[in-house]
Design a protein around this nucleic acid. Structure first.
Lengths: 167, 167
DNA sequence: TTAAACTTTCAAAAAAAAATGAAAGTTATT
DNA sequence: AATAACTTTCATTTTTTTTTGAAAGTTTAA
């Protein structure tokens, strides 16, 4: 396999993985492309490499920047904007975790708290509902906190976690 | 808020969360419904509660069973099939992790290994590609292994993990 | 201040994913 | 072995998501 082929394969695979995790394909592909580029890439080049429209590129780059995992770069004497991806994987994982927690887990926790707080009548059905949603609340909260704690290690959190678990 | 409203809110929320994580909405809703039901539910009832077609119910129940998180139950003297969800949350999380690892992470690792094994010429571009994809391979592999180890604790793995991390 | 070089926005189109429902399939009962 | 009770399949339709591209917006430089 030669370089171009390998690069393309990586971009496609990362895109597919993205969709399976609720991230749109193009967004994941742009991210993939930037991650393996040793220097900042212009929007023009992204459009060219991925064969996508200007609007598509613009919107997905915006989304990636909102996630905090892609940055704009300016080159001296260049009018165009260039983009780079967060390449430190520990940092990347931390940012994605934090963002998903904020956007998805926290709101879910709020709902779980609400629905588990209803006045359960005497019926088994209602009792079970309250019991199960309470358990779910506790579980999700605990998992969310664990993730938070782990990623607090900052540098090499994954390696540090391995050490903790092994001993 | 009364029971019916709370139940509906939970089902909707779980469904929305599902889509954000790449699981189809109905599949997540059926799962939610079964999780908070204190007794097995028939296909007919699922269709009724979620207002979905027979085909949709059938296909998504099949998918949930393939994931190993929903089971068929038979009631004596009943022709119809009934369904229940895995209600133990530790077990649920383990099954989902294992399945996602098998379906998505493992194949991705294979590709990462492939593309990071190309003969990198002398160009910085190619060197960076190989370097980055190698790092990614190591990271994903390590994360996958950690998840595996954690869920091996079986009972109360999340609590055990909290303990390990805190001390 | 004008124009060129570039980016963003968003209504409309296209593509992808999910849902329907009727026919085919299966299994249990008489 | 016929029928009733149920489930699965899959071509078609519907819905949702993504993409396009042209117009509007912005910034820089002459």
């Amino acid at each position: 396999m030669e370089f171009k082929e390998a690069k393309n394969k990586f971009v496609q695979t990362w895109g597919a993985l993205g969709s399976q995790w609720g991230i749109n394909k193009t967004m994941a592909q742009i991210h993939a492309l930037l991650m393996v580029s040793n220097e900042p890439v212009s929007m023009e080049d992204i459009m060219e490499e991925l064969q996508i429209s200007r609007g598509n590129a613009s919107m997905n780059l915006r989304a990636l920047m909102d996630w905090g995992i892609v940055y704009k770069e300016f080159k001296v004497g260049e009018r165009r904007e260039f983009f780079t991806a967060e390449k430190d994987l520990d940092e990347l994982a931390v940012k994605i975790s934090r963002e998903r927690s904020k956007r998805e887990i926290k709101p879910t926790l709020k709902v779980l708290k609400e629905v588990s707080s209803i006045e359960a009548s005497n019926s088994d059905e209602e009792k079970h509902f309250v019991d199960q949603t309470k358990k779910l609340y506790d579980f999700v909260l605990k998992a969310d906190n664990v993730l938070d704690k782990i990623t607090e290690y900052k540098d090499n959190w994954l390696t540090k976690l391995v050490v903790k678990i092994m001993k």
